[in-house]
Design a protein around this nucleic acid. Structure first.
Lengths: 133, 133
DNA sequence: TCTGATCATCAGTTACGCTGATGATTATGG
DNA sequence: CCATAATCATCAGCGTAACTGATGATCAGA
């Protein structure tokens, strides 16, 4: 239909978001929540600012995001002992198990989503190139 | 950095949007406004609903969008004589000239934006495939 | 110790997509 | 012809997300 790049990107993203949302909903998560869990699960405990930076999400949004995850029992915030300004965020055991199943779902959703393409990897490479990574 | 498809798409779109916004700002437009003008300029006069459908924008958003464009003198809304429920939206002469220069800018911004890729056309094709077009 | 930086949080703004309702107008069918 | 349904624009309101700017608590450095 349209060849406007903004239009194409916007609606491709919207469709992916919708597919992820519906697929993850039974587990009480959306794609954003899952990205937060993924940032936390990898390696040493992170402060909220570090989580936000890693996801390139605004610093003031991450608090609300964690509030929701904490209410649902996926993460815990603890005051860091060596720097009491910081909240160290860790996954609960529920958070860990949910993360693993949700992550599998995400991979499957992405695989299906990119199925129409001749090469999904090439498309991913293109996106990374555009971000300069 | 991240290989999450949602992350990649989101930030690629954000970077494009920013590039378009800054490039178009001197002409009093953003990428969204320009898309509206493009939908109007092509062919016969459209009702607001038709403009919204063509852009895949919510029906209730298009009104505000047109308000802004009308304030800035780019479009005019007239009650359709043969169906007085409809607003026929047309470009003013200022709208037309602005559209032409802005459209050239958009093409140049997109060209530069996709320059890092081995094949910009292929990337566009991929996006269209994902939208099922 | 004083000063400035850092972290989390809070209040408020802007933008967008969406739902549901309303009034005006047109189309349909009995 | 008239009553009903459908269509169009608009309005109020909601939820989400990104962002700015301020605050209090805490830490680091001079």
């Amino acid at each position: 239909m349209s060849d406007r790049l903004g239009y194409l990107l916007k609606h491709v993203l919207a469709q992916l978001t919708e597919a992820q949302t519906t697929a993850l909903a039974p587990h009480g998560l959306n794609g954003r929540d899952l990205a937060v869990l993924a940032a936390i699960v990898s390696g040493e405990p992170l402060s909220q600012l570090e989580v936000a930076a890693r996801l390139r999400v605004d610093r003031t949004s991450i608090g609300d995001l964690l509030d929701g995850l904490e209410e649902r029992g996926f993460v815990e915030r603890r005051r860091s002992p060596e720097d009491r300004r910081r909240n160290v965020v860790v996954l609960t055991s529920l958070g860990e198990s949910t993360f693993e199943t949700a992550e599998r779902i995400r991979l499957e959703v992405e695989r299906e989503f990119l199925a129409p393409l001749p090469s999904a990897d090439r498309f991913r490479d293109d996106l990374r190139l555009l971000l300069g990574e």
